[in-house]
């Protein structure tokens, strides 16, 4: 896959090759382009949401280089030669991933703007700690803000997801 950055002829660009959700992508980008903007507007990966660009809200959380990171605080050029995973990779053929299912069943989303970030943070938590305590869940989600749900159902969803994944 190749993405063109047209109409910006006077701005210097750099070629990058990134593995996004398992697929190699080559693109010409301005060095200043944030990874969040690259994923959203160049690759149309809409689960990556931008709520603050200040590193606070966590809506832009993706997996970068094996750990979760806020993509608004990375430049796309930093992803050259590395791997990025977004929520799009979770649901294969339209089927919900157990974590997504759990969020649905526990009504852990309202407006949904924060949800992708919570899904990624939950995935990271459960990979390391398949059976977290409430307090550990709170700590693991401390980099994500939800303005709608008051977090209670999100905690329930994380626990439900843990059960589902354990059963797999």
């Amino acid at each position: 896959m190749s993405v063109d950055d047209t109409g910006r002829s006077e701005r210097p660009t750099q070629e990058i090759t990134v593995t996004v959700n398992g697929e190699s992508v080559t693109a010409e980008v301005e060095p200043r382009l944030k990874l969040s903007d690259f994923l959203r507007s160049h690759l149309e990966l809409r689960t990556v949401r931008v709520g603050c660009e200040q590193g606070v809200c966590g809506a832009c959380t993706v997996e970068f280089d094996g750990t979760v990171a806020k993509s608004c605080m990375l430049y796309a050029v930093q992803a050259d030669g590395r791997e990025v995973t977004t929520v799009e990779a979770l649901s294969e053929d339209g089927n919900l991933h157990p974590i997504q299912e759990a969020f649905h069943e526990e009504h852990a989303l309202q407006c949904g703007f924060c949800t992708s970030g919570f899904l990624m943070a939950t995935r990271d938590l459960l990979a390391e700690n398949p059976d977290p305590e409430r307090e550990e869940i709170e700590g693991a989600l401390a980099d994500n803000i939800c303005r709608c749900t008051g977090y209670q159902n999100i905690y329930d969803a994380v626990e439900t997801a843990a059960d589902k994944l354990e059963g797999e």
């Binding site: 339209g94 919900l96 649905h104 949904g112």
Partner: peptide
């Protein structure tokens, strides 16, 4: 009942105004 809105949001098919271009 669980919400009908959820599926599209969870999978990235929801289109918020920031996505419209």
């Amino acid at each position: 009942l669980n919400r009908v809105e959820d599926h599209r949001i969870l999978t990235g098919r929801a289109e918020y105004v920031h996505d419209i271009s």
